[in-house]
Simulated assay, not measured.
Amino acid sequence: MGIEIERKFLVDHNAWQALNKPAGVQYKQGYILSDDTRTVRVRVTEHHGYITLKGPSGANRMSRAEYEYEIPIPEAEEILKGFTTNGTQKTRYRIPAGDFTWEVDVFSGDNEGLIVAEIELKSEQDVFEKPAWIAEEVTDDDRYANSSLALHPFKYWAKQND
């Protein structure tokens, strides 16, 4: 069984802007299924298409079953158009740090202004250093899940709290 173990953090915008970083990759993704126990997502980049299945999160919200398969880009685009009703757009940056690589998502569209960093671990006990641009941990906050952002975009959060 494929297991994803990751932690999620907000990113300090000023420190991120000052960081020398590689080119990012544009992602479009949509959800075929998304509920409390599983998600089925299709994702398209310039050079790849993927379909991903994710199971429920464990008690600590770090671990869950995950299966991801590359599919032809034309089919991924057809699935995005014909089978998904919501999704997100973002630019992903891969930043090596120590023994790990951070994946930093700079969201656009309805989630513009949100920057989230994820680190994938080999075990829940892995120790890692947080780069200076890492801010608050949000692993336990479901609002920051991409599937949640597709349904409840970041641009509406402030209005909901008013």
Rank of each mutant, 00 (worst) to 15 (best):
5 I>E: 05
55 G>A: 06
40 V>G: 02
11 V>N: 06
162 D>S: 11
24 G>V: 01
104 V>G: 00
118 E>N: 14
28 K>N: 13
25 V>S: 15
112 E>V: 10
30 G>F: 05
44 V>F: 03
130 K>H: 08
104 V>E: 06
146 N>G: 15
76 A>L: 01
149 L>C: 05
1 M>V: 10
80 L>E: 00
9 F>T: 02
121 L>Y: 03
25 V>N: 09
155 K>E: 12
60 N>S: 11
126 D>S: 05
91 T>R: 00
4 E>S: 11
118 E>Y: 11
81 K>H: 07
21 K>A: 04
83 F>T: 07
115 I>T: 04
157 W>K: 10
147 S>L: 02
68 E>D: 10
7 R>M: 02
59 A>N: 12
125 Q>S: 14
77 E>I: 02
72 P>C: 13
134 I>D: 03
123 S>C: 06
143 R>M: 11
56 P>K: 13
104 V>P: 00
147 S>T: 14
104 V>D: 03
151 L>M: 12
160 Q>E: 15
67 Y>R: 09
25 V>W: 05
155 K>Q: 15
136 E>Q: 14
81 K>F: 00
63 S>Y: 06
29 Q>P: 02
19 L>F: 08
50 Y>E: 15
150 A>L: 01
71 I>N: 04
26 Q>R: 11
108 S>N: 07
113 G>T: 07
85 T>M: 10
97 A>D: 12
72 P>S: 11
21 K>Q: 03
88 T>Q: 06
81 K>S: 10
71 I>L: 08
129 E>R: 04
121 L>S: 02
29 Q>I: 05
51 I>N: 00
42 V>Q: 00
30 G>W: 02
121 L>M: 07
118 E>A: 13
45 T>M: 08
131 P>W: 08
39 T>A: 09
76 A>E: 00
68 E>S: 10
114 L>M: 04
156 Y>P: 01
54 K>P: 02
66 E>K: 06
133 W>M: 05
117 A>R: 03
57 S>E: 12
156 Y>K: 12
129 E>S: 14
140 D>H: 11
105 D>Y: 07
63 S>T: 12
48 H>V: 03
2 G>T: 09
109 G>L: 00
133 W>A: 03
5 I>V: 01
48 H>I: 01
61 R>L: 08
156 Y>G: 14
